[in-house]
Structure formats: C-alpha cells, structure tokens
Write a protein that binds this DNA or RNA. Structure first.
Lengths: 357, 357
DNA sequence: TTGTAAGCGTTATCAC
DNA sequence: GTGATAACGCTTACAA
C-alpha cells in the first residue's frame, strides 16, 4: 500500500488505504497519468490506459473525493435545507432533485430545520464548510445571520417553494398568496359567504400563512369575513377533525372550509362524515397539495396541485446549467433568476355545488 | 487573506478564502492553537481564546471541512441509501435518523436507488469515496458488487428495514414474513376463508413480497388459499381501486383483502364504498404502514405499524455509540448487532366482525 | 499551553 | 502524452 517502508524520523500516519500512488506504481506510470485517466480516459495513450484500468480493478481502488475536492477546490455535493423531511411536499421535491443531480454525478447533503431559524443558520454554516457546489434552501425568508452566510457563499444559492424577498441566485416556486386568492375566488363563485380557513402552526409555517392571508384578503375585498383556525398540533387528519369542530364552533353556519393542507382536509372530510354533514351540499372543503388520496377519497377533494416534483427538477436543471456556463467574471454578479412554476386548482366534488354534480 | 505577497516562482492557485492561517495571523497565535480552540475551546488559555474567537467573527471564518476531514482521515458524513425518497416510510426513517445524527454534528449524504441494484452499487461506491463515518443502506439483499464494496468499507455498515441475510455491522428492522403471518392469523381468526393479497411491484419490492409470502404460507398451512394481485403501477390509492377490482374478478366471493400498503388499502376502501360493498361486514381490509390517515378514515383501517421513526433513531444511536467505543483492534471483527424493532398490529374497524363493533 | 512542521490524497501547473 | 512538484487547508505528533 502507500506505506513507505523506510521509517520516517518523525511524523507518520499511514491510513493504509489504496491510493492513487499505489495504482500508479502498479501500472508503472506517474500519479498524474492516473489522475488524468480518471478524469478523461481519452486523454492518455491507448497503451497505458488499459494498464491503469487493470491496476484500479485489481487493487479495488476507490478515489478519495475529499482529497480531490480539496485540491480542485470544488465538490460534487449540493447542500439542501428543508423544513421537514417527513413532509410529503418536500420529500417529493427532494426526491426529484436528487434524481436529477444524481444523473450528473452530484450528491445531496440533506438537512432539516424543523421550521427553526437557528437550526437553519447552523445547517447553512455546516453545509458551507463542505464547500458545496450549490446550496438549496426552502423559502425566501431567512434571518440576518443566514442571509449573511448565504451572501458570502461562493456557491450559487437557490431558494425554493416560495417567491419574493431578495433572491440570491435562483428562486423556483410559486406565490402562496395567489393560491389563497385562487381558492377564495373558487369558493366565492360557489356562492359561499361563510368561510373558514383551517391551518396548523402558521406562526412558523410562513407559506401556509400566506395562503391564508391571500384567501382572507381576497374575500375581505368582497365583504366576506373569514374565520381562521390555527391549530398548534401540526397538520394531520386528526387535527383536521379538530379544525372542523373549531370552525363549527366559531362559525356555526360555515359553508366552506379551506384547509392549508390535504391531510387536514381529509380529516375534515372524515369528521364531516362522522357528524352527518354532507360534503359538498352542506359544506365545501378544499385542501392544498393534491396528495395521492385526494383524487380518490369520498368525495374527491378539490385542492391545489403545487408541482412539488417540478420544483425539484427545475432547481436541479437551472443549477446544473448555471454550473456549466463559463464562470462569470464577477461571482454572484449575474441577475438572479426567478422561476414561477405556478400551481393548479384541481376542482373535484368536495367543492361542487349540487347542480354541478 | 491567505495569499502570500511574494510571488512564488511557480505554481500558485489562491482561492482567496479566509483560512485558519488568516485567523491565526489576526489573533497572533499559531494555526494549531486555532485548530485546538475550534475543537476544544477549553484547551487554550483564557488569554488567547477571546482573541481567536474575535478573529473568527471579524473574518467570518468558515472552516474547510474537506481539508479537515482529509487531514483527520474521517468525516462527519453518513451515507444513506434508500430505495425511494417519495416513500413515506423511508422519509420518516430518514427524518428521524437525520435529526439524531444532526444532534451529534453529523451530516447525511442521501441517495435513492429506485429499487435498482446497479444504482445501489454506484451509490455505495460514490458514498465510500466520501470516506463516510458510516454507511446506512436499506434491506439486507444486495448484489455481489455491492456486498464486496460494503465489505471493504472501513466504515461501519448498517442495514435497515429488514432482518436476515449476512449482516455486516448492524441491522435494525423487523421480519416482514412475521408481518404477513400476523395479518394472516388475524384474518383467519375473523373467520375469513376467501382471502386476497394486494401488492404492487413485488418483483422489486422484496419486502412487500415477504409480507405476501408470510401471509400466504401461514394460510396455506390452514388450508386457505390466497389470491394474489401484483400490480405493476406502483402503490397508490388508484392502484388500490384496481386491486380490489382484480380481486373481485379473480375471487368473486373474497371476504378479506390484505394490502401491502396503507395507501393501497385506502384505495380499496374508497372503491368498496363506491361499489356499495360494506367494509368490514362484507369485506375486511388491512393495510401496512399505519399512515396518518389510517386511524381516521372511514372505517378506520386495521394495519401494521412498522415503527419507521424508531428504525431511524435506533440506527443513529447504535452507530453513534459504536463510534464512541474505543476502536476495535480488528476492524469489522466485532459481532454484527441485530436489532428487531418489531411491529404492531393495530386492529381497527376495517377488519372487525360486526358483533365486535 | 503553544508552536513547528509533516503529512492527508488528490488536482493542476509547468517542463519535458 | 507524460511526469515532477507545488499547492489545497487542515490535523496532529512532537518539541519547546
């Protein structure tokens, strides 16, 4: 192995793993040639190429990316920061992103903030110390410490799932206010005048709050008041049930309930069924997310499809193309790119008037 | 910055980023003191500590983990390989694992195989070249190439979500056959004699197939035949509906249907409702996963709770404690540890006999 | 306690 | 095309 046989007078720490030097020695070429071969097999003469290849196989050589990255001053790692991995939206985005990055030989460093700003800062700091090729972060509102780190980063920074604020290099997302407004218009057209919004932890989930605000503001302009339920128990079918109870309590004649999430909406549907409330005849229900069950539950759920996978794919594609682009003279000088992937209102029975059915 | 002002005669590539040397210079101490301070602030004298701290803040120093890891010959990265990130089971496990590792300052390198053995091998190879602290992989069946890489790895290897085969260093999971047997016994005790199993892509999802086999074999011993539906469309509520249709087609008098997944089971419930089939009176339905909706859907779903989060947490804990343990003289010589986290049958209305209700 | 300097395993520059 | 050799930025053995 790489161990030199002569005893060094002082420091010496062999990690006896197969190194490039070992390969070079066995193939009887210089380490540079091995390095070259690894990066561009065509570049070495067809005479020594097979020798190198064989040496690699025989020795079971695995390149040390750490050393390589250090020397080259760049990694094949992308840092990704999401609020929660348990959340189906983000895991879908991450899945799509991972797939695309993977195709191009990039690895994902993943971290979750749990909607905690301090954790976010720490994660960004840690990821930066990995010298990542790029950094992907969720949302566009970050505290000052995070913003400063991000600004200093020598890697492109992408924000996802939300548009606005002061973009760094890339934003891929959509307007959550617009989602709220779209739902508001939909329910209003349905003729609903008594409307509730069911959210969970909207103090920290800023995007949910924006959807809520969008809906409320739009309806306010029409003179329709919205009763807002904000549960602290997190979004789940159970909390959906609680939300319906709370809504019926606070607004007994409620005609429509918009949920910040399909999972909660499902809970509302079940609770309504349990209470003998007819959806949509007596109560219209909408969600957000278009999760797999939403098109098959009874009744099928009107919801917003957020294109979670598109966001991940697009982030990867944009970042990748940006990396290929001949490096700009002034790093970070380029205009930030903002991509609105939009969303789609999916109208289903849970919010249809009886005559539409 | 780290740039030396005197022009070097030959090679020189400044990445003009703030280095430890810069911090040392500003604090007027040696680099090693800074290094020491970073790793153990108590170890330096209270006189220079604040100087270093200030220099770090003023300069906005971010340590280069690549250089550090290379020098120390160890990383703070854990490679994690899962079949799919979109799958709620795995994302829950990953979330729990990430949380625990994060608490101890470890980062996650994440990759998805999409149930493809070749991708698995590639991912393992790539992750190994990161010199990870440990490697976590899903399942215990891997092809030869993967096994060889894993065997050579100088990092502990943990397998999750499944037990059996030849464990490397750690296995945390449960028996999927036992799951199938448990469900079989449950349905049998209910009095069901005409039973179907609804799975999806069981050729590649080996764990689903084990659950199916466990159920079928157990019932075979009781003389009960099982009709197996294996859809190629993937597990979803939609495929659940298709599965029910297929089951009714192949076994018109089916009394119970065990689904390889809660999501499919939900589809079955909806389809049954649509067809006017009373669950559980006419048809008992069971799932697997105990997803959030399962306890609130109508009727609530009998299912298996797999302790996805526990698996992730336990993996992290075991690995962490293994890392703290004074390094074994012979790497990999220690006995592999196998942890059966078990699972729980959650009996709900979807499989109760009418008299139990 | 603090400093010195030798690696860690690559990549990249330059001369041949 | 191939090979020396100097970084890359840090950790750590050892001396002071």
């Amino acid at each position: 192995m790489s161990q030199t046989s002569k005893a060094s007078p002082r420091v010496r720490r062999g990690t006896n793993r197969v190194t490039m030097d070992d390969v070079a020695a066995r193939a009887r070429v210089s380490p540079s040639s091995v390095s070259l071969f690894l990066r561009n097999p065509e570049a070495v003469s067809p005479r020594i190429a097979p020798r190198i290849k064989q040496a690699i196989d025989v020795l079971g050589y695995v390149p040390n990316l750490l050393a390589g990255s250090l020397a080259a001053a760049r990694t094949r790692a992308i840092g990704v920061v999401v609020p929660s991995l348990g959340n189906a939206f983000f895991s879908e985005t991450v899945a799509a992103m991972q797939k695309e990055f993977d195709r191009h030989g990039y690895q994902l460093l993943l971290g979750a903030t749990d909607y905690d700003a301090v954790r976010e800062t720490e994660l960004v700091r840690t990821f930066l110390s990995w010298s990542p090729t790029a950094l992907v972060i969720t949302g566009c509102r970050h505290d000052d410490a995070t913003r400063m780190l991000l600004r200093q980063a020598r890697a492109p920074v992408a924000e996802m799932w939300e548009l606005g604020g002061e973009p760094f290099d890339l934003q891929v997302g959509f307007s959550h206010r617009a989602v709220g407004e779209t739902l508001a218009a939909h329910l209003y057209e349905l003729g609903a005048q008594r409307i509730a919004f069911a959210g969970a932890r909207m103090t920290s989930d800023l995007r949910a709050r924006q959807r809520c605000d969008g809906l409320r503001d739009w309806l306010a302009r029409k003179g329709v008041d919205v009763f807002v339920v904000d549960l602290q128990s997190g979004a789940s079918p159970t909390s959906g049930g609680e939300a319906l109870a709370a809504a019926l309590d606070g607004m007994p004649d409620v005609q429509a309930i918009a949920c910040s999430n399909d999972v909660m909406a499902l809970g509302v549907l079940f609770e309504a069924q349990r209470r003998g409330i007819d959806v949509p005849a007596q109560l219209a229900v909408t969600g957000f997310g278009d999760l797999p069950f939403s098109q098959v539950c009874v009744p099928p759920l009107t919801t917003i499809q957020p294109h979670a996978a598109s966001i991940g794919l697009r982030i990867a594609q944009e970042l990748l193309s940006q990396l290929d682009t001949p490096a700009d003279e002034n790093a970070g000088a380029a205009e930030p790119k903002v991509v609105d992937v939009g969303f789609q209102l999916v109208t289903r029975q849970s919010s249809e008037t009886s005559r539409d059915v």
